[in-house]
Design a protein around this nucleic acid. Structure first.
Length: 493
RNA sequence: UCCCGGGUAGCUCAGCUGGUAGAGCAGGUGGCUGUUAACCACCCUGUCGGGGGUUCGAGUCCCUCCCCGGGAGCCA
């Protein structure tokens, strides 16, 4: 027990008249009887000055001034906190209020008034402050000062209590909702493709194996015949193949969920577990897919600028001072488009001394991609029609016989945000490319069936959700774009 | 996995060509003031990432392992 610290009381509860009694500030806008407590976001939006409010949250800082204490109360509902003014007339002022430190959970009842001081428009003149849960300042890792993101990563259970990580979480949630809304409004259906799968998606990286076998029974690929699924299963690396099945039944679909890559990649833009959005659209060629992806990104950025302005400003101030300008430019001009061949010419003629020389037929290196989107256009670029040799079997062969109908969207600071293609819908051509790729035709019989029965042109793409979160927050490391980052050697909680 | 750069107080970091560890912030105590990165005074804080070696002596030099960051590859 720390010296001079009030005893922890796990049973401390805000005073309530009874279990089912409605409190005066509960929101019941739709008359449904829902009894959720009031939130700071609502109070700061409506500013019901002159009314009594009841608000619960966590104290960020306490400042004492003679017989008055100022508490900053945050409940996570928005970036701003609510200033609570407590004077020494309160009965627990010396006993408890003066001992409140960062992280303490409290419930406050008081009168909302115009604030006489600069820094906030309104404040609560407290009539009662109840400590719900103490936080020992000597051991609580979060202080009322800025912390490095690396340090915060070491306390994943506490980091969402910081302004920055909470802001990321709110933006992430808003983006998720905006994505679902975007597609719903355009006649798409969400398809839940499987997490556990037995089909690999070529070019998508290494799969984690899912097995019910005891470790000592795994002795090479043959072991999986006795396994739970009777064959080797793994965590999905892409929902595309299954999304195609539903696109050829429902027309427009998308899948959005966790995706896994067992790559030993240690970079600021890779995760072993990440969320990927994968629309798949029937009767849609590459140009169609590009237009969907472009409008989607534009719409999502617009939404964040409109609905998360406070958060974006925070990041613009403390994380990346060019963020706002970049986001506004994304919502403005159309994305630049470059055929792979044009991109190669452009890079070759740039006079730049690249570490890896550019040559038609080899994939663009990170330095090339960065030069294109960060220096040539200074904005998003769609590179399309790549050589077939560097792309997976399912991408549609162009008439030139050399390139496939593929596209990548590159954005400054992040690199590849989107990768997509028109899928090969012609049975013979697909079968030949699968053969060339050394794929077992029996294994992918169902995929060929989609071309055997009522085949149609269709396209789709994958968008890395965390990279999108990075784009709109300016976060430099993808580990700050997901609540619980999974990377090689790290999955703490 | 490869190439760089790091690991020193709770946090952010300083510590020269080896001489026995410091600052700011946080925390504690007291003071003061409608405060807001509050202020003032005093106080506390260390397996210097682990192990091994060189040396009279290692935070500092060497070896090795672990971890982290940046870049590369792979991709979203």
């Amino acid at each position: 027990m720390p010296r001079g610290r009030p005893p922890h009381n796990r049973n401390a509860r805000p005073g309530r008249g009874g279990n089912n009694r409605r409190r005066r500030n509960d929101i019941d806008a739709d008359g449904s009887g829902i009894m959720l407590p009031q939130q700071v976001s609502d109070i700061l939006t409506r500013k019901p000055v002159g009314t009594h409010i009841e608000i619960s949250g966590w104290i960020r800082t306490r400042r004492d001034s003679g017989g008055v204490s100022f508490l900053e109360l945050s409940d996570g509902s928005c970036l701003d906190s609510l200033q609570v003014v407590a004077d020494n007339g309160l009965d627990n002022y010396d006993r408890e209020i003066r001992k409140i430190t960062t992280g303490t959970a409290v419930q406050v009842v008081g009168l909302l008034v115009d604030s006489p001081a600069k820094g906030q428009e309104v404040e609560v003149r407290a009539e009662r402050i109840t400590v719900i849960g103490w936080s020992d300042a000597e051991t609580y890792p979060l202080q009322k000062k800025r912390h490095g993101f690396e340090f915060l990563r070491s306390i994943p259970h506490l980091r969402p209590r910081t302004n920055a990580l909470a802001a990321v979480a709110r933006i992430r949630s808003r983006l998720d909702y905006a994505i679902r809304n975007f597609f719903r409004e355009r006649g798409f259906f969400l398809v839940h493709t499987p997490i556990i799968t037995t089909s690999d998606c070529e070019g998508a990286g290494e799969m984690f194996t899912v097995t019910a076998l005891p470790p000592e029974q795994i002795k090479g690929p043959g072991s999986f015949a006795d396994d739970f699924f009777g064959r080797r299963a793994g965590l999905t690396v892409s929902g595309q193949l299954q999304a195609e099945i539903y696109a050829l039944a429902l027309g427009r679909v998308y899948t959005f969920g966790p995706t896994f890559r067992a790559e030993n990649s240690n970079t600021s833009r890779h995760l072993a577990e990440f969320w990927m959005l994968e629309p798949e659209i029937s009767f849609c060629d590459l140009a169609c897919a590009m237009s969907v992806a472009e409008e989607l990104i534009r719409e999502l950025v617009r939404t964040v600028l409109r609905d998360c302005a406070k958060e974006v400003n925070l990041f613009n101030r403390f994380v990346d001072s060019k963020l706002l300008g970049r986001l506004e430019s994304i919502t403005g001009e159309p994305f630049a488009r470059l055929a792979y061949g044009e991109a190669v010419d452009l890079l070759a003629r740039s006079g730049r001394d690249f570490e890896f020389p550019v040559r038609w037929g080899v994939d663009l290196q990170a330095e090339h991609e960065r030069y294109l989107c960060e220096e040539v256009v200074a904005g998003p670029v769609i590179v399309h029609d790549y050589p077939k040799g560097i792309k997976p079997f399912y991408m549609r062969l162009n008439d030139d016989g050399q390139t496939v109908a593929a596209m990548d969207i590159l954005v400054p600071g992040i690199g590849e945000l989107v990768g997509g293609s028109q899928r090969e819908e012609r049975y013979d051509l697909l079968a030949r490319r699968m053969d060339e790729a050394g794929l077992d035709e029996a294994e992918y019989g169902w995929y060929l069936d989609l071309r055997r029965y009522g085949t149609v042109p269709h396209s789709g793409f994958g968008l890395g959700f965390e990279r999108l979160v990075q784009l709109v927050t300016g976060m430099h490391n993808i580990r700050e774009a997901i609540p619980f980052p999974r990377t090689p050697g790290s999955a703490p909680c």
